[in-house]
Design a protein around this nucleic acid. Structure first.
Length: 207
DNA sequence: ATATCGATTATCT
DNA sequence: GATAATCGATATG
């Protein structure tokens, strides 16, 4: 039994949402195909007093989703190449979000591989294929590619509605322990420990 | 094993 | 005109 997370789940401080999102599922429905990944790494970006957050300079054409209702997809394009997925937090009018940084692939692996431009593995199991599995969704831009998430397609999308093609869902899994570390790839506010991971999980981004 | 670099564009100064 | 919440390729020890 899996159940979409309701809007009120996201209507609070991004730090609490971030921790609560670990172990939840990202689900993309495309006709008969279903893509599913378990969230293992996230970062919180605050609406106020966080120099690294896109919301820091106030509302702009790009970041306006952050100031809207909770539980919406904020998708941005970066380095001229990549997309990244966030979910808006806090009640409407107050900014904040959580960046989804890594997933453990659960369902639709062949579709994800195709979307990533990766060849199917010659061997379906064993340590050789764990490297291949890690390539699929271990990174914020990788998971967007695997799930076909783009700004044009998904920015502003309601992730909480029953009919949404893209959802965040709970299947009852409760991870632990959770580790807090500094966020990745930012220059400002680099010391704050607002990255949260499932400790020891094999599908975290980076080294 | 780690380090550096290029890609390519939206956004903001 | 500079910068960026990244990735993958290439170079080097």
């Amino acid at each position: 039994m899996i159940r979409a997370l309701p809007a009120n789940f996201f209507a609070r401080d991004p730090r609490r949402v971030a921790r609560a999102l670990l172990g939840k599922l990202l689900v993309r429905r495309r006709g008969k195909i279903r893509l599913v990944g378990r969230i293992v790494e996230v970062e919180a970006y605050l609406g106020w007093g966080d120099a690294a957050a896109h919301a820091a300079a106030g509302i702009t054409a790009r970041n306006r989703v952050l100031f809207g209702p909770p539980g919406r997809a904020y998708v941005y394009f970066i380095y001229g190449v990549h997309h990244c997925l966030n979910v808006s937090c806090q009640p409407e009018g107050k900014a904040g979000c959580v960046l989804i940084r890594a997933l453990e692939p659960v369902e639709g692996l062949a579709e994800m591989a195709r979307a990533r431009g990766l060849p199917l593995p010659a061997v379906p199991a064993g340590p050789a294929s764990s490297r291949w599995l890690r390539q699929l969704t271990s990174g914020p831009a990788r998971l967007c590619a695997a799930f076909g998430i783009t700004r044009a397609r998904d920015n502003g999308r309601d992730l909480t509605s029953r009919s949404s093609r893209l959802q965040l869902a709970d299947d009852g899994y409760r991870p632990q322990p959770i580790l807090a570390t500094p966020r990745i790839g930012i220059r400002k506010a680099a010391g704050r420990r607002l990255r949260f991971v499932i400790a020891g999980n094999a599908f975290l981004s980076g080294r």
